[in-house]
Measured scan of single mutants.
Amino acid sequence: ATNIVSKVKWYNSTKNFGFIEQDNGGKDVFVHKSAVDAAGLHSLEEGQDVIFDLEEKQGKAYAVNLRIK
């Protein structure tokens, strides 16, 4: 899926990962520091509106092509 609009559930800049809620009630989506860095960001804030693409690797959903709404 591409261009999903949602909100950051939480992000831990010390552990370099977090999760984004899915508005459709699906499972929370993992977001890694590499996606945050690629977006030119230093961190994410809880409740922040984001747009991302969903990529599945080894049966897990990852946020990629992250951008701020």
Rank of each mutant, 00 (worst) to 15 (best):
A1Y: 12
T2S: 11
T2R: 14
T2M: 12
T2V: 13
T2K: 14
T2E: 10
T2Y: 13
T2H: 12
T2C: 12
N3A: 09
N3D: 12
N3Q: 08
N3G: 10
N3F: 06
I4K: 09
I4W: 06
I4R: 10
I4Q: 08
I4V: 11
I4M: 10
I4T: 06
V5K: 12
V5D: 06
V5N: 10
V5S: 12
V5M: 12
V5H: 14
S6C: 07
S6V: 04
S6E: 02
S6N: 06
S6H: 05
S6G: 15
S6Q: 05
K7V: 09
K7F: 07
K7N: 05
K7H: 11
V8T: 03
V8Q: 02
V8C: 02
K9A: 04
K9G: 02
K9E: 01
W10M: 04
W10G: 01
W10A: 01
W10K: 02
W10N: 01
Y11G: 01
Y11A: 00
Y11I: 02
Y11W: 10
Y11K: 00
Y11F: 09
Y11P: 01
Y11D: 02
N12T: 06
N12V: 06
N12E: 06
S13D: 10
S13Q: 11
S13V: 13
S13T: 12
S13H: 12
S13C: 14
T14G: 11
T14I: 13
T14K: 14
T14F: 13
T14M: 13
K15F: 11
K15A: 08
K15Y: 11
K15C: 10
K15P: 01
K15V: 08
K15H: 08
N16T: 07
N16L: 07
N16R: 15
N16Y: 08
N16A: 12
N16K: 14
N16H: 14
N16G: 15
F17S: 01
F17P: 00
F17E: 02
G18M: 01
G18F: 03
F19H: 02
F19K: 02
F19S: 02
F19A: 02
I20K: 00
I20W: 00
I20T: 02
E21I: 15
E21W: 15
E21F: 15
E21Q: 14
E21G: 13
E21H: 14
Q22Y: 15
Q22M: 15
Q22A: 15
Q22P: 14
Q22R: 14
D23N: 14
D23L: 15
D23G: 15
D23A: 15
D23Q: 15
D23F: 15
N24R: 11
N24V: 10
N24A: 11
N24F: 11
N24T: 10
G25P: 08
G25T: 08
G25F: 09
G25C: 10
G25L: 09
G25A: 09
G25Y: 09
G26W: 09
G26R: 12
G26D: 10
G26Y: 10
G26K: 12
K27Q: 10
K27R: 12
K27F: 10
K27H: 10
K27D: 09
K27C: 09
K27I: 09
K27P: 14
D28T: 04
D28P: 07
D28G: 07
D28V: 05
D28E: 08
V29W: 08
V29C: 03
V29D: 00
F30V: 03
F30H: 03
F30S: 01
F30G: 00
F30Y: 07
V31C: 02
V31E: 01
V31N: 01
V31T: 01
V31Q: 00
V31I: 09
H32Y: 05
H32K: 03
K33G: 10
K33F: 09
K33A: 10
K33E: 03
K33D: 02
K33M: 06
K33T: 04
K33H: 09
K33R: 11
S34D: 07
S34Y: 09
S34C: 10
S34K: 10
S34M: 11
S34H: 09
S34P: 02
A35I: 07
A35Y: 05
A35C: 05
A35D: 05
A35E: 10
A35Q: 10
V36F: 05
V36I: 11
V36N: 00
V36L: 15
V36A: 03
V36K: 03
D37W: 14
D37E: 14
D37K: 14
D37S: 13
D37A: 14
A38V: 08
A38I: 09
A38S: 09
A38C: 09
A39R: 03
A39G: 06
A39L: 08
G40N: 09
G40Q: 07
G40M: 07
G40K: 08
G40E: 07
L41C: 08
L41K: 05
L41V: 08
L41F: 10
H42L: 13
H42C: 14
H42A: 13
H42Y: 12
H42M: 12
H42N: 12
S43F: 13
S43T: 14
S43R: 12
L44G: 01
L44H: 01
L44Q: 01
L44A: 00
E45I: 14
E45P: 07
E45N: 12
E45V: 14
E45M: 13
E46N: 13
E46K: 15
E46P: 15
E46L: 11
E46W: 12
G47W: 05
G47L: 04
G47V: 02
G47Y: 05
G47K: 06
G47S: 05
G47F: 05
G47N: 07
Q48V: 09
Q48P: 02
Q48K: 05
Q48I: 09
D49H: 14
D49L: 15
V50I: 14
V50D: 00
V50F: 03
V50K: 00
V50G: 00
I51H: 05
I51E: 09
I51A: 06
I51C: 10
F52H: 03
F52V: 04
F52S: 01
F52R: 00
F52Q: 00
D53W: 05
D53N: 06
D53V: 04
D53R: 03
L54R: 08
L54W: 05
L54H: 03
L54T: 05
E55Y: 14
E55R: 11
E55I: 14
E55A: 12
E56A: 09
E56I: 15
E56P: 04
E56Y: 15
K57H: 12
Q58I: 07
Q58H: 14
G59W: 04
G59A: 05
G59L: 05
G59C: 06
G59K: 06
K60S: 07
K60V: 08
K60R: 13
K60H: 09
A61M: 14
A61C: 13
A61S: 13
A61Q: 14
Y62T: 08
Y62I: 08
Y62L: 07
Y62F: 11
Y62N: 08
A63S: 01
A63K: 02
V64A: 07
V64D: 04
V64T: 10
V64S: 07
N65L: 02
N65Y: 03
N65P: 00
L66V: 09
L66W: 00
L66T: 01
L66S: 00
L66Y: 00
L66H: 01
R67I: 08
R67Q: 09
R67L: 05
I68D: 06
I68W: 07
I68N: 06
I68E: 07
K69H: 13
K69F: 14
K69N: 12
K69W: 12
K69P: 14
K69S: 12
